[in-house]
Design a protein around this nucleic acid. Sequence first.
DNA 1: GCGGTATGCCTAA
DNA 2: TAGGCCTACCGCG
Length: 270
Amino acid sequence: MPEGHTVHRAARDHDGDFAGQRVLVSSPQGRFPAEELVDADGRAHLERVEAYGKHLFYVFEGERVVHVHLGLFGKFFRRRTPAPASRSSTRLRLEGEAMTLELVGPTACELVSVEDMRAITARLGPDPLREDANPRRFYAYVARAKAPIGAILMDQSRICGVGNVYRAEVLHLLRVHPETPGKALPKATLRAMWRLTAGLLRRGVEEKRIVTTRGLTLAKPRERVPRHDSTHVYRRRWCRTCEGPVSTYTLRARTVHYCDACQPLEAAAE
DNA sequence: GCGGTATGCCTAA
DNA sequence: TAGGCCTACCGCG
């Protein structure tokens, strides 16, 4: 689940659940130093929760920040308070007035300072899900990059929040081959790429899952797009658009999915 | 119960 | 580029 949409949705939900409260903080698994954050009653005052790309920041009183990165396996379990007993693998547990949160399997869950938080976000490219995002940094880099666009989209220092699923789907919808060098892409295609990425990510935040089919509009409340129909090429054997075979190869240790017929290399590189 | 798989990313060589 | 981290889930038997 964890591409940018998951993280931004978590920030929104958790901010609503806990911001402004003295939250009971613990680490049933013992690998997060909750005792360094809490007062004698086991609680700490949470001011707000913020997302930047795939990074989450829980900002507590006193400029103390819990930095979370879900990695490949990380997952949240959100329940009403009082919640049932924690599973033993729970790295971080937050108990608020109405909701209780458990975090399992994250790559990062650490107590940092506000300066550390700034240093982390400073390393990231613009995030299409943030109001303050400036896509010009992305355009400027791609316009002179020899690197394939398929690699650039996954590079969090160039554009952040995009993962393997959105990469495959954005390139497919724009009919761009993943091996196209950045600088071969027309400016108009780049602008469309940013807008499409932002639109798909926003839809993901609302639907709490990645759906790139059936346009950018949200599914009707009860109309759940079946899993096998939620992407065009990602993890599919046959292209949803042309029904031809989906090709895969490994680029920087990640499997790229694309359709050779819909995304020819020449066409994209004019 | 076991083995394979996954939407990520860091480090060593 | 390969390996490691770390967990849930699913299909198979």
